[in-house]
């Protein structure tokens, strides 16, 4: 069991409820050194031990599968910080504080919030080249499932390419900085039809009456004619204040 010191802060994570009560509740503690995840009631068949209580300690640097799963298995992540040396190459949540906060500061001056660059034009236009545009819708509360904030990402490609992977994440402005509240596992599409709109989304729960500033972000990667390519950076939506009904 991890030793708790006064520097530990209990992360405010929602209880993860799954059909059959598989992964509830989840607790995490952080002090910049240790993240402990406690999972009660694991199904014996998948865990190898019936109704086990499992404690997992992740120590930085968070790497590889453990890192990915810390990010994917129990979304959404609230107030969970990531070590900069995380090296996961899939669904990699980067720590948004520096670059995004800087972007916020810069963009706030011109009144654009977290809105990223938009309306980019394809480079290297020419016969045989393919271009995919990445668009992030601004987040909104789901109209069909109140209590969820949803951010959608759209990717449209000009040519038939071999494969496409779409990343989506949802940011929330909290305690003076932008934090990831959900990093969706990538959506992989293959093959990709020209001019078809491919959608992915990130989402996070919100309580009734809860109000927050959110923005969505997306990026793409793919293979065309055997050549891999990826977005140079995340594409951000406009910032939007959402108050959950």
């Amino acid at each position: 069991m991890a030793t708790r010191s006064p520097t530990h802060q209990r992360a405010h994570l929602p209880t993860c409820v799954h059909d059959g009560g598989v992964v509830a509740p989840v607790e995490r503690f952080r002090d910049g050194l240790t993240v402990r995840t406690t999972v009660h009631g694991l199904p014996g068949e998948i865990a190898g031990r019936p109704d086990a209580t499992t404690r997992i300690r992740h120590k930085p640097p968070y790497r590889g599968a453990a890192c990915r799963l810390a990010c994917i298995a129990f979304p959404p992540q609230r107030n969970l910080e990531y070590h900069p040396s995380m090296t996961s190459n899939l669904a990699q949540p980067r720590r948004p504080t520096r670059s995004v906060t800087l972007a916020v500061v810069v963009l706030a001056i011109v009144g654009l919030g977290c809105q990223g660059a938009g309306g980019g034009s394809p480079e290297e236009a020419g016969p045989g080249n393919a271009h995919c545009s990445v668009t992030a819708d601004y987040p909104h509360e789901s109209s069909g499932t109140p209590g969820w904030v949803v951010a959608k990402v759209r990717v449209v490609c000009t040519n038939t390419i071999d494969s496409l992977a779409i990343d989506a994440k949802l940011h929330r402005f909290a305690n003076g900085k932008w934090v990831d509240v959900d990093v969706a596992a990538p959506r992989v599409v293959s093959p990709v039809t020209p001019n078809e709109k491919y959608t992915h989304q990130a989402q996070a729960p919100c309580a009734k009456g809860e109000r927050g500033s959110y923005c969505g972000a997306g990026r793409g990667s793919g293979v065309y004619g055997g050549n891999p390519a990826k977005s140079a950076d995340w594409t951000y939506s406009a910032e939007r204040t959402v108050e959950c009904a």
């Binding site: 309306g119 290297e124 080249n129 545009s133 990445v134 109209s143 891999p228 390519a229």
Partner: peptide, 20 residues
């Protein structure tokens, strides 16, 4: 045959997912 990813125009979708 080169592939590039570029930011699209900022979304103007304000339907908020309404089910019509």
């Amino acid at each position: 045959m080169r592939l590039s990813f570029v930011p699209g125009a900022l979304s103007e979708d304000d339907s908020d997912g309404a089910i019509n």
